[in-house]
Simulated assay, not measured.
Amino acid sequence: MPLFHALVPCAGSGTRAGSAMPKQYRPLAGRPMVMHTLQALSQVPQLSSGWVVVSPADDFSWPVQHWPLHFQRIHCGGSTRAASVFNGLLAMLEAGVDPQDWVLVHDAARCLVSPAEVGHLIEVCRDDPVGGLLALPLPDTLKSESTGRVSQTIAREHKWLAQTPQMFRLQVLCDALAATAQVNFEGITDEASAIERLGLQPRLVQGSARNVKVTYPADFELAEAILRSKA
């Protein structure tokens, strides 16, 4: 039976967060943000292992306490998120992970994901021929813009907001990313977009509005409040 593994790209600088340090290391509710992410993933019983992709020059003082014992850090991060994911997949294959195992790629900055959501994604997609991702149906009216003004209202029916984790077979995802590696992964905004280029259709699994990607300064305030309320 194929196993399930988490892959967390953690080599970005997080320039939009407005902080001196990479945003994934910024303290939230008493811990670096990424540690909340890893703790949530470590509580998913179906996950056999976790792979955290950090920069080759990463000098962050990783805490020993609360580190999941079945997770490991690999220093092969790239200049973009897609490059970090691709390098991480290659490292997993080189380490002997079965190419037919499932990999769940999850953003380090989605620290509010719940173990139940990740477990639900696994159960829905474990027998799927393609794989899938957590996502939310678009709740708001969508506008397109031209020179700072509304140019068109776009129908929100059948529109979804992609989240993570995104779950695909290790070798298939690696091959999908390899196909765009020569052009620096141009047009690849998430793992699903790479899979789509193979002519495949990932499954959409409804997630939670709380599974936000902490990106801007105001997002940290929201995440801090939610994490402290959970504690």
Score class of each variant (00 low, 15 high):
Pro115Asp: 11
Ser151Trp: 12
Glu157Cys: 09
Val130Ile: 11
Pro165Cys: 01
Thr147Gly: 11
Met167Val: 06
Trp160Met: 05
Ala162Glu: 08
Asn87Pro: 13
Arg81Pro: 00
Arg169Gln: 04
Thr153Gln: 02
Pro129Met: 01
Trp160Val: 14
Asp107Lys: 12
Glu94Met: 12
Cys76Gly: 10
Leu112Cys: 12
Leu121Asn: 05
Pro115Phe: 15
Leu138Gly: 05
Leu136His: 10
Thr80Pro: 14
His120Val: 01
Leu142Cys: 10
Val103Gly: 05
Ser114Trp: 05
Asp107Trp: 10
Val150Ala: 07
Arg149Asn: 12
Phe168Met: 00
Lys159Gln: 00
Ser79Gly: 08
Trp160Leu: 10
Pro137Phe: 00
Gln171Glu: 01
Ser84Glu: 15
Met92Asp: 07
Ala109Gly: 14
Asp175Ile: 00
Ala162Thr: 00
Val150Ser: 06
His158Met: 09
Gly78Cys: 13
Pro99Gln: 09
Leu138Lys: 03
Gln152Pro: 04
Ala135Arg: 06
Ile122Phe: 00
Pro139Lys: 11
Cys76Glu: 07
Ser144Arg: 15
Glu117Arg: 08
Val105Met: 14
Leu90Met: 11
Gln100Arg: 12
Val118Ala: 00
Trp160Arg: 05
Ala135Tyr: 10
Val105Pro: 09
Glu117Tyr: 08
Val124Cys: 04
Cys174Tyr: 06
Glu157Tyr: 07
Val172Arg: 10
Thr141Ser: 08
Asn87Glu: 12
Cys76Asp: 06
Phe168Glu: 03
Leu142Tyr: 12
Gly77Val: 12
Thr141Lys: 14
His120Ile: 04
Cys174Ala: 14
Val150Lys: 09
Val118Asn: 00
Lys159Ser: 02
Val118Tyr: 01
Glu157Gly: 09
Leu134Lys: 06
Asp175Tyr: 03
Thr147Lys: 15
Gln163Asp: 04
Pro115Gln: 15
Thr147Pro: 08
Arg149Ile: 08
Phe168Ser: 01
Cys111Asp: 02
Gln166His: 08
Gly88Trp: 08
Ala82Phe: 05
